[in-house]
Amino acid sequence: MAIEDRRERERSARRRLIITTARRLAEAEGWDAVTTRRLSTEIEYSQPVLYKHFTGMDDIADAIALDGFAELAEIIRATRFEAGTPSEALTRIAHAYLNFARDNPAVYDAMFTRATTLRFAADDTPPQLIAGFAELRQTVDLVADGTDAETLTEVLWAALHGLVTLSRAGRLRPGHESDRLQLLVRQFTGGRDES
């Protein structure tokens, strides 16, 4: 059994190396730079080894997206616990979300803009996606005030994603990020400033 355990650890380590290397390349040079040939050169394994772990680049991008959702969920959780009021929690998680997208553009693309086989809001939705949404909803629950929190969370998520997408494309006025977030939070809190 020890040999099988060692082989599984080695397999898991190779898989993690592939994901980490692909992520590093995508963040440094963009997704077009991430190919199986380039990855095999970078990690010093043959392309067939890559295909033992992943069916192709889309599968690797999905693995990176899953990691991203897990990271975002943890960031939102930690940020929510640092806040005093519900309004402050919503403001902080909105900033944290935008900061995550800004600091991890390739991961964010894998999560939200690349073609994917990951399914959202379905019976087979991966736990990392569920956790990301659930953490966002925990914050929205604080301000939902009788509104359908699930739908309100989807609207907040869509608004944050819209801000990320429009900001990246240079479609929003620079220097007004804070104003936009304050307005968004006021809309979700009904203008209440809980103390």
Rank of each mutant, 00 (worst) to 15 (best):
F112N: 08
D67N: 12
I18F: 02
R24Q: 11
A22G: 11
A28P: 07
L50D: 03
L129E: 11
I19S: 02
A65T: 08
R37M: 03
E29N: 10
F54H: 00
R11P: 04
F133E: 11
L98P: 01
L98C: 11
V107C: 14
H53Y: 04
R23S: 10
R16T: 13
D5C: 12
G84K: 09
D5Q: 12
I18G: 06
I64C: 06
F54C: 01
T21C: 08
E82H: 11
P48Q: 08
P126G: 11
Q128H: 13
E42Y: 10
T35A: 02
P127W: 10
F81I: 08
M111E: 10
L90F: 02
T85G: 03
F69H: 15
E74D: 14
K52F: 10
D32S: 11
I130N: 09
A106E: 04
R14Q: 14
N104P: 06
I43T: 02
E74R: 09
D59W: 01
A26W: 02
A89K: 00
H53Q: 09
G132C: 12
T36P: 07
D59E: 06
E82M: 05
F133P: 01
S46T: 12
T55G: 07
R6I: 14
F69T: 07
L90M: 01
P48T: 01
Y108T: 07
N104C: 12
Y97V: 04
T55V: 09
D103R: 03
T21L: 13
G30Y: 03
D109H: 07
Q47V: 15
T79F: 05
I19H: 00
D32N: 03
V107A: 07
R114A: 02
I93C: 03
D123P: 10
D5T: 15
G56P: 01
A106F: 09
R119P: 09
V140H: 04
L90S: 00
S40A: 12
I76Q: 04
L72W: 00
A63Y: 01
A73V: 06
F100R: 00
R11T: 08
A78V: 14
A28G: 09
R38K: 13
L72P: 00
A101R: 01
I75M: 03
A110V: 07
D32I: 04
D32Q: 06
T20R: 11
R14E: 15
R15E: 08
D123F: 08
P48R: 03
E8R: 14
P86Y: 02
Q138T: 12
P127T: 04
L66Q: 14
A65K: 00
F120D: 09
I18W: 01
A89W: 02
D124A: 07
G30C: 05
R9D: 11
F81S: 15
A106M: 12
T85K: 06
T139L: 11
T125M: 13
R11E: 10
T55F: 08
E29I: 02
R92A: 03
L136K: 08
E74I: 09
P127Q: 12
A115H: 14
G30F: 11
R7A: 09
E88A: 05
L129M: 14
E88G: 07
R11W: 09
T125K: 14
L90G: 00
E74K: 03
E135L: 04
E135A: 07
S12W: 12
P126E: 12
D5M: 08
R6F: 10
P127L: 12
V107P: 05
L39E: 02
A96G: 02
F54T: 03
R102W: 06
T117D: 13
F100S: 02
R9G: 11
H95P: 00
E71K: 01
T139A: 13
R9Y: 05
